[in-house]
Design a protein around this nucleic acid. Structure first.
Lengths: 107, 107
DNA sequence: ATGTAATATTGCAATATTACGATTATAATC
DNA sequence: GATTATAATCGTAATATTGCAATATTACAT
């Protein structure tokens, strides 16, 4: 089947999985790192930087955006994508609470 | 194509993506949480707990194991899977350093 | 309004992932 | 050795992801 049945799992488990998926592709990790380093975050620069086609980058940006990790604004004719730092920090604390809750008793 | 070309990316970027992939499926998140709560971590119990078939659980366990997150030992006739806590903490610190490095200047 | 540059969308092909039934391997116990 | 319980592997189907070419859209010029 290949479909993961999200309704089978609790919200906090799904949250972790959904967040992790954003970082589960190196192109998206690189995009996020690149965006965070720039003062002006313009999509076409990303295409040059990552070495994937413009439609593919656009697709990855949508995944990142759907997760709420982008703040966008217009700068001339170009979009200015910026990292939504507060959302990013939210992800970090969700991950850390998952990591901290998950410790072992056995072995 | 659908294949991500890992050789295109730096090691630290690939590390994050590879780690994230482990957590990118709710079944694996749930398995990890469940294992961490048990004193004796037996595969068949996991099957009952997660509600997926034994082969599917086995497959997920392999993904988790390949990431180095399991320590295994025999307990009677059943395998005892346990969380490799030190590896888990390693993941946490890798993620945190990624999160901490990735902040924004613009917008 | 027309042209141009930047980004989004569509359509499609290749590959990866997820899931399970059937089978096989492994290990403990008889 | 045979039996039984448990986990791994194989084969296969369904779905998701990734990637790009072609096209559409958008915003800003002129």
């Amino acid at each position: 089947m290949g479909a993961s049945k999200l309704d089978k799992y609790s919200d906090d488990i799904n949250d972790i999985a959904i967040i992790a998926k954003v970082f589960a592709h190196p192109a998206r990790v690189k995009i996020l790192q690149f965006i965070s380093k720039q003062e002006h975050c313009i999509c076409n620069d990303i295409v040059d930087e990552i070495g994937l086609s413009q439609p593919t980058i656009s697709q990855h940006l949508q995944v990142i955006n759907k997760a709420g990790l982008l703040k966008g604004d217009f700068k001339g004719k170009k979009f200015c994508y910026c990292l939504n730092v507060s959302r990013f920090k939210e992800f970090q604390s969700l991950f850390n609470s998952f990591f901290n809750k998950t410790t072992s008793n056995c072995c």
